[in-house]
Design a protein around this nucleic acid. Structure first.
Lengths: 184, 184
DNA sequence: GGACGCATGTAAGAAGTTACATGATTTC
DNA sequence: GAAATCATGTAACTTCTTACATGCGTCC
């Protein structure tokens, strides 16, 4: 039986450093969130289950009097992580409401241009967010793990080409006559 | 109050043609599924709710003795569709397990190359699927609705550049030494 | 003393998938 | 007569988000 979606990201985040639930969430938000998010509502229950399954173990590590439980991979957990990495799984999902609106834009003449412009801005915003986490990926690369940086470059390229597509499509829509009528 | 995610795709699919639940599902599978999917388990209950809300109405239209209910937009439904199109909503989600594996690949030296290659093949397969629905988009364009074709081109470009990124990254990984060791 | 960050959690509900069930009709 | 397609639905389950609750520590 495979790992649950959240289990895999937790095990992965513990692959080098023991971390608390809070720190796992921070790590996710500072890296994989763009293609694999996780909320506290998933993380804490999953930490329990992984502990019960013997894949991780927690240790009380209070920080300055503040309660805190730090988890690390067990040998079994490391094996489960490796097994998952080798499996040919392929979850690949995309939900893009902007594209959906563009698809249906004939029902409202002004909608097409608006949808494309908003989509462009979204990709530009995401790009800016990715720029903000570049330092972290560089640090990982310097510490001997080049993969976060490689993945980050994928994200940057994706949002750049997407924003570019929006810009070109916008020009095209304007050129073919901004105010052409759709059916009503 | 906004439309539910499934409500919007149903209303959109009824914007030109009245359709049965079965036909809506087919239309989704033949077009928006790549960025906005819907299953029967969502469609049929939502058709009830939209009927109750007065946004669509169903009419019995048996086809050769086979029971069948065809739905069309009411005036209220058409207004709701337009309102949704004009709203600045921006659901944009990506889940890419291949990228997640690449991100964690340092935990298993052979994983990186494998993850990139599998991701490349995935994009090539998706590209082939998109080629299969090109005819439908062309037909829509010929019938006066150019937007499905524009959206399709976005998808084609996305999977092309993604596959290209995978190819380049694979070459890079090989060049920097296929068998470099990760930490254990 | 108040705001903010650290830290852990739960409850409710929305959203979506999968598998199942049923039955008619058409095609080979 | 078997298989595929048309057609409609439900139940169980998984996943995930959001909002709430609690309390300590630190900084201003």
């Amino acid at each position: 039986m495979g790992l649950s979606p959240t289990a895999s990201v937790i095990l992965g985040m513990l692959r080098r450093t023991p971390r608390s639930g809070y720190e796992i969430k921070q790590a996710v938000d500072g890296s994989t969130r763009f293609f694999w998010a996780a909320s506290y509502g998933q993380i804490y229950p999953e930490l329990r289950q992984l502990t019960a399954a013997g894949l991780i173990e927690g240790e009380a590590k209070p920080r300055g009097g503040r309660k805190r439980t730090v988890y690390r991979l067990t040998r079994k957990g490391r094996a489960a992580l490796r097994k998952w990495l080798d499996e040919p799984t392929e979850v690949h999902e995309l939900r893009d409401e902007g594209l959906l609106k563009l698809f249906f834009a004939a029902a409202d003449p002004s909608a097409a241009l608006q949808a494309v412009e908003r989509k462009q801005h979204l990709h530009e915003r995401k790009l800016a967010e990715l720029r903000e986490i570049e330092a972290g990926a560089e640090a990982a690369a310097a510490a001997g793990d080049p993969y976060p940086q490689i993945v980050l470059r994928c994200g940057i390229e994706f949002h750049q080409t997407s924003a570019g597509w929006c810009r070109r499509t916008r020009d095209e829509l304007l050129a073919r006559g901004d105010d052409e009528k759709g059916e009503s």
